[in-house]
Simulated scan of single mutants.
Amino acid sequence: MGVSGSGKTETSHAVADALGFRHIEADHFHPEENVAHMRAGTPLSDADRVEWLQRLVIEMQRAIDDDVGFVLACSALKRRYRDLLRDAVPGLCFAHLSIDYDTAIQRVGGRAGHFMPISLVDSQFATLESPAGEPHVLVVDASQPREQVLNEITRWMKQDGGLAINAKEDLSAAPLDSANKRGGAHGGQRSSEPANMVDSQDVEPKGAELTTQPIYGGKFAQGFDRITDWLMAALLAFMVIVVFSSVVLRYAFGTGWTGAEELSRLAFVWLVFVGVASSMRRGELMAFSMIRDRFPHLLRRLVDSVSWIMVAVASALAAMGGWNQMQFGWTINSPVVGYPLAVAMVPVAASMVALAVLALIQLVNVWRRQPPLPIAEANVTAD
Results as ranks from 00 to 15, higher is better:
350 A>R: 12
300 R>C: 00
353 V>H: 10
334 S>V: 00
368 R>G: 06
316 A>C: 09
329 G>L: 03
355 L>E: 10
328 F>H: 13
367 W>Q: 05
331 T>R: 13
345 M>G: 02
307 S>F: 15
317 L>F: 14
350 A>K: 12
363 L>D: 07
334 S>H: 00
354 A>I: 10
355 L>W: 03
361 I>P: 03
372 P>G: 15
361 I>L: 14
328 F>N: 09
300 R>E: 06
332 I>R: 12
347 P>I: 00
334 S>W: 00
357 V>Y: 06
327 Q>P: 09
365 N>Q: 11
330 W>I: 09
311 V>T: 08
331 T>A: 15
307 S>G: 06
330 W>G: 04
301 R>E: 04
357 V>G: 02
308 W>A: 01
306 V>Q: 06
318 A>M: 13
372 P>E: 00
342 A>K: 03
318 A>E: 08
342 A>Y: 08
371 P>D: 07
351 S>R: 05
324 N>M: 14
360 L>Y: 01
331 T>L: 12
334 S>K: 01
318 A>C: 09
331 T>C: 03
332 I>Y: 11
317 L>C: 11
326 M>G: 05
327 Q>E: 15
346 V>I: 15
333 N>K: 14
311 V>M: 12
300 R>N: 01
324 N>T: 11
368 R>N: 11
349 A>E: 11
304 D>A: 13
306 V>R: 03
310 M>Q: 11
351 S>M: 02
354 A>G: 07
344 A>K: 03
336 V>R: 08
338 G>F: 02
328 F>L: 15
